[in-house]
């Protein structure tokens, strides 16, 4: 992890500790993974967790990602009962895989019980299905529960006529599930075939870091692929590449900007603009949701509150 949390105020004065509205403890400072500056936590929160000085995009949990995009209280989580199993009865040393996964799910600072959270949200009244990963859950590696949650989300999106947004950061396949996890690449791709058959769009947002089996499956085959600035994205990780070539990789290699330059992604979109970009894309690709939104606006205008 490149981010370090400071629980104690640094000794120099910043004069920014006057905001009492947030629930963030007022002695909390975070060190920027980009420029190394210390940023007052509440200021960071207001800036969508983007460094105001160097634009470094801090890592977010799945729930933070979803809540940053969704209209207030519009997130309806799906399949939270679906959790990790251990098909290989996998043990390294004294540690059983299933126990490790459960321990991570039970951790108090964790709001997800697997590496992927899914559900329905609205963006300015436009309904869509979202599936976001949580890098703090075993490097957001893709195992069976992840794959099944995503497959169910695709199926429901196709049935309900909704577009899908995936937000992906991942170390790749969940090695502890062996070939089951490799096959999730094919499974998730097959699940998005359901969406394609229904002519509904898949928007893929790649965030730092995104590698291996996730980049090499559904996250790359989306109709639109965008990435956050500076996000590192690729198939093989930089360490593996350096081991093979025995050469240092150039600055900026595998960043979102590098991928854009090489014709691999559609746009690099700063975090603060993702919501607006998605709204525009949804209106272009799913015009009925625009109509639904307009219809809802009309209803509100007529003094009637719209349901669902």
């Amino acid at each position: 992890m490149r981010e370090i949390i400071f629980r104690r105020k640094p000794s120099f004065r910043t004069g920014r500790d006057d905001d009492q509205q947030s629930n963030v403890p007022d002695d909390m400072w975070r060190k920027c993974g980009g420029c190394g500056d210390l940023i007052y936590a509440r200021e960071l929160e207001r800036a969508h967790h983007v460094c105001p000085r160097c634009s470094y995009h801090f890592r977010l949990s799945a729930r933070q990602r979803i809540e940053l995009l969704a209209d207030a209280d519009s997130y309806e989580p799906w399949d939270e009962s679906l959790t990790t199993n251990d098909p290989l009865n996998f043990t390294t040393g004294n540690e059983r895989y299933i126990e490790r996964a459960r321990a991570i799910a039970a951790r108090s600072d964790n709001d997800a019980n697997e590496a992927l959270s899914s559900g329905r949200i609205e963006i300015d009244g436009r309904p869509l299905v979202v599936a976001a990963t949580d890098f703090s859950f075993m490097g957001a590696s893709m195992g069976s529960a992840y794959g099944e949650k995503l497959a169910r989300a695709c199926r429901r999106a196709a049935e309900r006529g909704l577009p899908v947004l995936t937000i992906s950061s991942s170390g790749g396949a969940r090695m502890q599930e062996g070939l089951f996890s490799l096959m999730q690449m094919a499974k998730t791709t097959a699940a998005f075939d359901l969406l394609r058959a229904a002519r509904l769009p898949h928007f893929s947002l790649l965030v730092d870091p995104c590698y291996g089996g996730v980049t090499a499956s559904y996250a790359a085959t989306a109709d639109i692929v965008i990435a956050e600035p500076g996000a590192r994205i690729g198939f093989a990780g930089p360490r593996v590449i350096e081991q093979v070539t025995r050469q240092k990789l150039p600055e900026g290699f595998q960043t979102a900007e590098f991928l854009l330059d090489h014709g691999l992604i559609d746009q690099v979109v700063p975090r603060a603009e993702v919501r607006a970009t998605l709204a525009t894309l949804i209106d272009l690709f799913v015009p009925q949701s625009l109509n639904a939104q307009q219809a809802a606006a009309r209803l509100v205008g007529a003094g009637v509150s719209s349901g669902g």
């Binding site: 094919a186 097959a190 090499a216 790359a220 690729g234 198939f235 093989a236 590449i241 290699f253």
Partner: peptide, 26 residues
């Protein structure tokens, strides 16, 4: 495994694999 060299990354190794998988599923 797939080639892990820097040039393969530049040319979209992940994207090429993903598209193969998608071509096969249908």
């Amino acid at each position: 495994g797939a080639d892990p060299g820097p040039r393969s990354e530049e040319h979209g190794q992940a994207f090429a694999i993903a598209e193969c998988i998608q071509t096969l599923t249908t």
